[in-house]
């Protein structure tokens, strides 16, 4: 790096001018190089995404070409006969995630309402921080807890209870039928729900906090109850952000591997009962990829990955667009 000494007496004004010019040139070159390097780094983010997409497409191509559209609508998954269809895995992925959201969203909203409206001030920070820390716990922890603690409990207590409870009710007795295996779609959805609650809660709380106090005070001022303030002021004001937060949680749930793999049961079947073993895209890949030696088998697994990537990309993109709108509104 050039150091300019302005007070060296033996340098005439002309020499000074040339050293200066050289220094400025050096700076300009350094500036340009640094700018280029940082630009390349920023570009690498896009390169990673395109790379992921292209490599998945490339790897999935043999399977997609062989099975065509049938890959998406057949549930047969037979490595021995080399016949693969993704429907069971897609179905399992969607059902576990949607079920998990049905459980997690009300709980997360409840916690967020508690944190922003009811909680005494001294408790808000500790609980808020606890929620954020829990969002960082690796998913394998949820998986191992689910396997050793939750499954035995589900099998011996919750599932027999559900089966007996819904047995006389039509429709529901199909959803909750069969022997209590413990492992299965229901257990996976439950573990997923516990896992995404901190994510959704953290976003929801942040979004709730963007509501101007004046709006809430005005509502209280004309005699609204707490529920009415939440329902008529807070939720309408934050609707976009709420949907964004839920989509973010859904994106996480769809792609979650470890928490699900332990408890789903890994059965390539579409069962009408939520208690039956099933599978998800990520669980199939995690379980079978290292055992797959046949090229068509590997390609089919990569095709599953491509489908998962596509689904989560769309969900996360919608979530980002919605949350960005809230951030822009806040910045104004």
């Amino acid at each position: 790096m050039a150091v300019i000494t302005m007070n060296s007496s033996d340098v005439g004004p002309k020499a000074l001018a040339t050293t200066r010019a050289a220094a400025v040139r050096g700076f300009r070159r350094g500036d340009r190089i640094f700018r280029l390097v940082t630009f390349a780094a920023a570009l690498s983010v896009l390169v990673i995404l395109c790379g992921v997409m292209l490599s998945l497409l490339f790897g999935a191509w043999p399977a997609l070409r062989t099975f065509g559209f049938g890959f998406f609508i057949h549930a047969t998954w037979n490595p021995v006969k080399d016949v693969f269809g993704a429907l069971a895995a897609i179905y399992g992925t969607l059902v576990t995630s949607v079920l998990a959201m049905l459980l997690a969203v009300p709980v997360s909203f409840g916690i967020a309402v508690f944190l922003t409206e009811l909680c005494p001030w001294w408790l808000r920070r500790p609980i808020g921080i606890a929620v954020e820390l829990l969002a960082g716990i690796p998913s394998i922890i949820y998986g191992i807890w689910g396997l050793f603690v939750f499954l035995p409990f589900v099998q011996s207590v919750i599932q027999p209870f559900l089966i007996n409870l819904f047995a006389p009710i039509p429709v529901l007795n199909i959803l909750f039928a069969g022997p209590p295996y413990g492992i299965g779609t229901f257990s996976a959805a439950f573990i997923l729900a516990i896992m995404v609650v901190p994510f959704i809660t953290a976003v929801t709380r942040d979004v709730f906090e963007t509501v101007p106090a004046v709006l809430k005070e005005a509502a209280y001022g004309i005699g609204a109850t707490r529920l009415e303030v939440v329902r008529r002021v807070v939720i309408p004001y934050t609707r976009t952000g709420l949907v964004g937060g839920v989509m973010l949680g859904l994106g996480r749930a769809l792609g979650e591997t470890m928490a699900v793999t332990f408890v789903i049961g890994n059965a390539h079947a579409i069962s009408s009962s939520l208690l039956a073993p099933g599978t998800t895209i990520s669980a199939v890949i995690a379980n079978e990829f290292n055992e797959a030696t046949d090229p068509m088998y590997i390609s089919s697994l990569i095709a599953l990955g491509l489908i998962l990537f596509f689904i989560t990309f769309v969900v996360l993109a919608i979530s980002r667009l919605l949350l960005m709108r809230i951030e822009d509104a806040e910045a104004k």
């Binding site: 996480r252 792609g255 990955g305 998962l308 989560t312 996360l316």
Partner: peptide, 8 residues
């Protein structure tokens, strides 16, 4: 990418 499935 921040929330993309890590298995991918």
């Amino acid at each position: 990418l921040l929330s993309a499935p890590s298995i991918i």
